[in-house]
């Protein structure tokens, strides 16, 4: 018995370290793209998910590559956690020919069909009914797939959010709605835009079970969303998860963040999901501080190598602009 326990404990440690590495990869990836944006290498706007990595990693832990996913313009981390290639996402952010979308989608429209990623969306809440449709496809096919859709707190005030929840409920579809509540609906506190700040209570109106989870605790997210995924896969229908979190950076790079205080950001930085995970690993003795530093160096080196490679990659052929319309 003791041996079995140790074995499980080892599994858990290994899994936790994998989560940690993936969160760190997303963090370093986002930092790299911010640097590129500031150097003028990225067009339009860039919306990093720094501070929200535990939701992507935890929620997608039990999700299979064949499962469907939609997410938002803040969704590069989720793409990586779903299995998209680091180089492919990076190249897409830079608009390169080798990008997942041949450079025609950009950072807000990451898509990777081979990993079930049917699209990040630049329209708030618009990916939610699309994920419901993918869940409908899974239901019609009876193939055991599920759909996961990520959206922010701002999305809950869009009409189509409600339409999508209702459809998933009446048709008992295999889908998990993951609301990343980072307290700000773009540049406005969500509390000023809703009468009821308990966003998850909206699910009850559609008779969809809901749970609230600490979105900065990767293990808690994995456990809670994991149950929802099991429920979806076994025909139990949709679940709504509200993951409470905070983005440490602006809505987009260059956002002056006049809507919140430095103190508030600093308080949340204390709850950094990666920092928390590291403390937990050290407290449990799953890894030494030295090996964690070495891990961090490896992740940083991996990002740097990929970045150097992708920066050299060719731009799309100009004829490419006319392809893939119909």
């Amino acid at each position: 018995m003791e041996g079995t326990f140790t074995h499980r404990e080892e599994d858990h440690a290994r899994q936790f370290l994998q989560w940690y590495e993936l969160m760190l990869t997303i963090r370093r990836f986002e930092e790299q793209t911010i640097e590129w944006y500031q150097r003028g290498l990225i067009g339009g706007s860039l919306h990093p998910a720094i501070g929200q990595e535990a939701i992507a990693v935890g929620a997608l832990d039990a999700v299979r590559p064949t499962d469907y996913m939609t997410m938002t313009y803040r969704g590069r981390g989720q793409a990586l956690a779903k299995g998209a290639s680091l180089e492919g996402v990076m190249a897409e952010v830079l608009g390169k020919a080798s990008g997942l979308c041949k450079g025609k989608g950009g950072p807000m429209h990451i898509t990777d069909v081979t990993h079930g990623i049917i699209g990040a969306n630049a329209i708030v809440a618009a990916g939610i009914p699309i994920a419901v449709g993918a869940a409908l496809a899974a239901h019609l096919a009876g193939d055991g797939r599920i759909a996961v859709t990520f959206f922010g707190d701002g999305a809950v005030n869009q009409g189509v959010f409600h339409e999508a929840l209702n459809l998933a409920a009446i048709w008992t579809l295999p889908i998990v709605f993951v609301c990343e509540n980072n307290l700000y609906s773009e540049m406005t506190p969500i509390r000023e835009m809703v009468k009821n700040e308990a966003v998850s209570e909206r699910a009850a109106a559609y008779r969809i079970p809901a749970a609230v989870v600490d979105g900065n605790d990767v293990a808690a997210v994995a456990e809670t969303v994991g149950m929802a995924i099991d429920r979806a896969r076994s025909g139990g229908g949709p679940t709504f998860i509200e993951a409470l979190t905070y983005r440490f950076v602006g809505h987009m790079v260059g956002d002056p963040e006049t809507y919140r205080s430095r103190e508030e950001v600093a308080q949340w930085r204390e709850k950094d999901p990666i920092l928390q995970a590291r403390r937990r690993i050290e407290a449990e003795g799953w890894a030494t501080p030295e090996s964690l530093t070495a891990l961090d160096d490896r992740v940083t080196a991996r990002i740097r190598t990929a970045a150097e490679q992708v920066l050299q990659a060719p731009e799309p052929d100009l004829e490419e602009r006319l392809a893939d319309v119909y």
């Binding site: 009914p129 699309i130 449709g133 993918a134 409908l136 339409e163 999508a164």
Partner: peptide
């Protein structure tokens, strides 16, 4: 049959189409 929810069910049709169906 769908609810009176054009945005929702067209979105759902798009998702199903992306997943290989022909709504």
């Amino acid at each position: 049959d769908t609810p009176i929810s054009e945005s929702g069910f067209i979105g759902a049709a798009i998702g199903a189409a992306a997943a290989g169906w022909r709504p």
